[in-house]
Amino acid sequence: MPETRTITLRINGREEEGRFPAHRTLLEALRHLGHMEVKCGCEKGDCGACAVLLDGMAVDSCLTLAWMAAGKEITTVSGLGDLDAPHPLQKAFADGGAAQCGYCIPGIIIAAKAIIDEHPEPSEDDIRLGLSGNLCRCTGYTKIFEAIADAADDMRAEGGAP
């Protein structure tokens, strides 16, 4: 059996320890630690369901080795907001009917966060290009585009929520 190592992952602002072998992906490690909001859709970087922010940058956690994420700030969709205090993106997605089956949504909201961080006033092209690695089979994307644009508007109006 290969060597395992105890690593510390900083997830949604909290440090969590886990013991993993080198080949364990960040997706597997996060789910092992109970972060079930990170979804597995393809395990090869085609669908984006497992996207998380790593030091603010959206990555596919299925293509990231857990050891290499140690010491970095990991943000999942649950780290953006919760039922009581949803992030503007989460609110816009829920109210705009952008989530149907919802399985792709944790990854899509992470990608959307990255899009808005880089383009506070995103163009349609910014949104489409930013989502091209996130597959959704239910929505046709139209309401997702609208929700991201709405959230960006809200965030600018509120003077730049995080």
């Binding site: 970087g45 984006g48 996207a51 940058m57 959206a58 990555v59 596919d60 293509l63 990231t64 990608a111 990255a114 899009i115 290009l129 930013g130 989502l131 091209s132 690695g133 996130n134």
Partner: peptide, 12 residues
């Protein structure tokens, strides 16, 4: 680069 993979793949 624009049409290279998706955002997450382009980022890494």
């Amino acid at each position: 680069a624009r049409l290279f993979g998706g955002l997450m793949v382009r980022n890494t």
